[in-house]
Structures are given as structure tokens and as C-alpha cells.
């Protein structure tokens, strides 16, 4: 703070201190990243002629949104949509019901170690496997149709909800739960009075969010034969029926928007 120090500083250039202070590390990170980007761009083979041709088709597709065709394939569209919704509802119900006990088991503060390990294992497997890959395997095992889709979505719901529920329980207020336990409550009563009220609002919010995700996912399961609107959409693209595809996409976007709005309203009410 002495003036001597100030005199030293005056006239000296000032530069913002770098985020990574070690210059060697900093420059190797920067060069490494640039080198990667160049290598990545080099290895992408783009057939620009094909892309140029495609621009016209892309424009056709955008135009299709101005005149979506709900009529000519109405049967396929409504059938597929109904199947998607049915799969979403059934899988959400089953998935949520199963994820509650697994979520309880995956919370370290209320479950004994062996149960904890098993439940965490289930969660980890469910989260690591992509919905579409699970769907492929289940279609191979159970055959084509919405049953495979339903099982896929239920399985994915379990991984998603149980993990978040378990995290929520682990971070809850201990004092409230202890107060109930101090009153001599049994385990079930303890969960019912000490734990449930604390995690319920978030559980409801997350469940509704998952319904939203399940619907979006159900739209692609049809690509691998697991039922839903995806199959119709795939056919529409294959036949270059852009106006039908546009109609399906508009329906999906509309339903997702509606679900999002609904989940916002419900979440605001329970919290």
C-alpha cells in the first residue's frame, strides 16, 4: 500500500489475469482444442453438391408447415398418436409407482446398505442405457408393438425419478424426520409423516415433468418398431410426404407445449 508500490505500478501495462494461470497449460489447452476442431472438420465428409440439392427440399419442408396435411393419412396419424399417448400414460403410471420404493431404497439416509446398493445399481443401469437401445432389445425379445415401448418408457422413468427422489430425500431436513421418529413411530409411519410431506411437492413436479419427457420419447420409439407415432412419421419422411410430416410435428409440438403449460400450473399449485 506504500507509495513506493504505487510508483512501481504506474506506467506498467495491465492485463486481465488469465483463467488458467500456468501459460504452458493454457496454450496447450488452446492449441489442443484448435487442433481437435481442425481434425474434426477435416474428417467430416460433406457432399456439398448433395447439400445444395437438398436446400430446395428443405425449403419445401419449411413451406409444408404453412399447409400441413392432417387429412390424407388421418387414420395413421390418429392411430399413432393415440398409441403414443396410451404408452405415455401407462408407462408413467407404472414407472412412477415402481420408482417410489426404489427411490426410497436408493436414499442412503433411510435405507440399509445392501438395499441401497441394489437400488443404486438399478438406477445406474437404467440411466446408462439409452431409451432407443432398450427399445431395440425389448422389441427383439417381446416382438413389435406398444408393449415394448411401454416397458422401455417405464424402465427409463424408474432411472430418472428414483435418482431425483433419492437425492431429494437425502437432502431433506433431518430435524423434522427425527421429531416424528422420536414420537415412537413405526418405519412406515415415519416415512408417511416425516419424509413424505417434505418430498411430495417435488415428487409431483418431477413426475409431471417425466410425463412430458415420456411423450417426447414415445414419438421416436416407433422408429425401431416399439409403437407410437414415430412409425407414421418415419413412413412420411420415406415417402417425402412433407406435409404429413409437418402435420405430425405440429401435433407433437402442440402436445408438448400443452404438457409444459400444464406442468407449470400444477407445479405452481403444489409448491
Amino acid at each position: 500500500m506504500s507509495h513506493r508500490e504505487l510508483d512501481d505500478m504506474l506506467g506498467r501495462k495491465w492485463r486481465k489475469p488469465h483463467f488458467v494461470t500456468n501459460p504452458v497449460l493454457r496454450w496447450s489447452l488452446i492449441f489442443g482444442f484448435i487442433a481437435y476442431l481442425i481434425a474434426a472438420f477435416m474428417t467430416i465428409e460433406v457432399d456439398w453438391g448433395r447439400v445444395y440439392e437438398g436446400l430446395d427440399r428443405g425449403w419445401q419442408f419449411i413451406l409444408a408447415f404453412t399447409r400441413p396435411d392432417f387429412i390424407s393419412r388421418a387414420g395413421d396419424i390418429w392411430g399413432g398418436l393415440l398409441e403414443s399417448i396410451v404408452m405415455t400414460v401407462a408407462a408413467s403410471v407404472v414407472g412412477i409407482l415402481i420408482s417410489i420404493p426404489i427411490g426410497l431404497g436408493a436414499a442412503r439416509n433411510i435405507a440399509p446398505l445392501p438395499v441401497y446398493m441394489i437400488c443404486r445399481g438399478i438406477v445406474a443401469i437404467s440411466r446408462a442405457l439409452q431409451e432407443i437401445i432398450v427399445a431395440i432389445l425389448l422389441v427383439a425379445i417381446f416382438g413389435f408393438g406398444p408393449l415394448a415401448g411401454f416397458l422401455t418408457l417405464s424402465f427409463a422413468t424408474i432411472g430418472f425419478l428414483s435418482k431425483l427422489l433419492a437425492e431429494d430425500i437425502e437432502s431433506m431436513d433431518k430435524v423434522q424426520a427425527e421429531a416424528i421418529r422420536a414420537s415412537g413411530a413405526k418405519w412406515m409411519q415415519w416415512i408417511n409423516y416425516g419424509v413424505q410431506p417434505q418430498v411430495m411437492p417435488r415428487l409431483i413436479g418431477l413426475s409431471i415433468y417425466r410425463v412430458d419427457i415420456n411423450f417426447r420419447e414415445s414419438a421416436i420409439l416407433g422408429l425401431v418398431g416399439a409403437g407410437g407415432i414415430g412409425a407414421t412419421l418415419n413412413t412420411a419422411f420415406d415417402r417425402y410426404e412433407y406435409d404429413t410430416a409437418a402435420a405430425i410435428l405440429i401435433l407433437i409440438i402442440g402436445i408438448v407445449m400443452m404438457l409444459e403449460y400444464l406442468s407449470g400450473v400444477i407445479r405452481a399449485r403444489v409448491q
Binding site: M1, H3, E5, L6, M9, L10, G11, R12, K13, W14
Partner: peptide, 18 residues
């Protein structure tokens, strides 16, 4: 540089140069 110098002077004046 004049701005940088002035900034140093002010920080020194309020005792926060370090």
C-alpha cells in the same frame, strides 16, 4: 495506459492497490 495509471492511483488512494 493513462486510464490504467489512474485506476492504480485511485486504488492506492482508497488503500486497495494490493
Amino acid at each position: 495506459q493513462s486510464d490504467v495509471d489512474e485506476a492504480f492511483r485511485l486504488l492506492d488512494r482508497v488503500g486497495l492497490l494490493h
